[in-house]
Design a protein around this nucleic acid. Sequence first.
DNA 1: TTAATAGTGTCTATTAGACAATATATT
DNA 2: AATATATTGTCTAATAGACACTATTAA
Lengths: 254, 254
Amino acid sequence: MSRIEDYARPSVAADAVVFGIDTAQAESRGGLKQRKLKLLLIRRGEAPFTGSFALPGGFLRMGETLEQAARRELREEAGVCDPKLIQIGTFSKPERDPRGWVLSCAFLALTRTVTLSTAAGSDAAEACWMQVTCTETDAGESLAVTDDAGNTLLYAENGSIRNHALAFDHAEIILEGFRRLRDEVLYHDLIFDLMPELFAVSDLQQPYEIITGIHTSPQNFRKKFASKLVETEYYNETAAHRTAKLYRRKDGIT
Amino acid sequence: MSRIEDYARPSVAADAVVFGIDTAQAESRGGLKQRKLKLLLIRRGEAPFTGSFALPGGFLRMGETLEQAARRELREEAGVCDPKLIQIGTFSKPERDPRGWVLSCAFLALTRTVTLSTAAGSDAAEACWMQVTCTETDAGESLAVTDDAGNTLLYAENGSIRNHALAFDHAEIILEGFRRLRDEVLYHDLIFDLMPELFAVSDLQQPYEIITGIHTSPQNFRKKFASKLVETEYYNETAAHRTAKLYRRKDGIT
DNA sequence: TTAATAGTGTCTATTAGACAATATATT
DNA sequence: AATATATTGTCTAATAGACACTATTAA
């Protein structure tokens, strides 16, 4: 009874929720180091949702896997190379795309830098790193995505979307991406995939706290991660205070 | 450039890795209660892989979500009603189905009983609950799926498949399902979705230990779960020992 | 010197595990 | 009585958090 030809076929896309850490020196106070969580979005150049922001992604091609498609689109569309990819879910509400029946397989993608090496000739007309903010409100917990001008692209409270200006169901996908990011950081040390090869303990803490919502003193944070780190001979060349030893992730720990 | 019609479309299926707990009285020793982890498989009645065991599932239809498709197929094909469903991944290797280009969106499905209410007229010609065994070997950890006669359908060590007799890439999907089941039980109390409304503390322990590999004394296991349980007025009508109070899951805990 | 972060050590509170002891069912 | 599980309680080990204190850099 179940001949493969008897069934209508949807279009399938692969989209990515790309997170990265931005380590910027704050202008004020002589260079306090801020390490901020960023999300990569693309301004759409074509219908539908022309001009809106959306996740980078594109259609799956015959002969490739979903992960290959996501990787290809990230390279072509946003100049993101060699990200860590974790599949987070396939979104399938029939009405999610006004063009027709399109499923989207979403990936959580992590980069070790927020430099956009937007290769010449790429589609990335407008790929931007947006600010991700996570705060404790009295109503619970909220997540906000804002552009550099401070405009809110997505605001969610307790995991439900209050407000957004994003294409398709991408707000939903971002929320799921952040939820998964938190889980993976909490339980599988995914925080290291947001770090460069060598990093200071303090480089770890701010992103960890933004993502998990768990706040600790620098001293106790150090102890918490001590068993997962290997000390190197390198030091940070930095600012108006003691230089920090650089560490590397201890392997053999999943 | 990206017209939706420009892209070839794959067929899309929804398959489920269905787990349940079998509470059987052992024949020997006057009825020691064994609570075993079971996996639901279907013997295929058609090509390809005719006669092999496979996950229950089927093709996505236009107008439904992947979850609706999984639910429908579980009902039709295996008589499984109202399971808890968690999407675990979409499998997309181009060669995974000899019939052509078929993606499979896999779900982890949990039932509160292993009774197959195989409705008359259903496709479930041969739906069987297989034994799931998880052991610590010197090489690490192994997972085995065996039928009632003791034949091994799947054997994996440290997450890599050693041996299997299952259709398509379903061995891989089962492994991913078990991995996810473990994570969800460890970090999100998914064990309760394998339990009936009312249960004794000891009903919880054996499945929890099989799935997580964490072994504790009955006393300490009780303490570990005390904060997540609400005592009821009901008791177990059972065997050659003190009756057990029945509990219910405390709500408000994710 | 001061400000700022890096890093160590110590004490305490909370949690997880070992295990003794008691309770209550059936055979 | 013997056995098997249920349930409570106590002690101890391991872990997580608070916080004092020292170190080192540049301005």
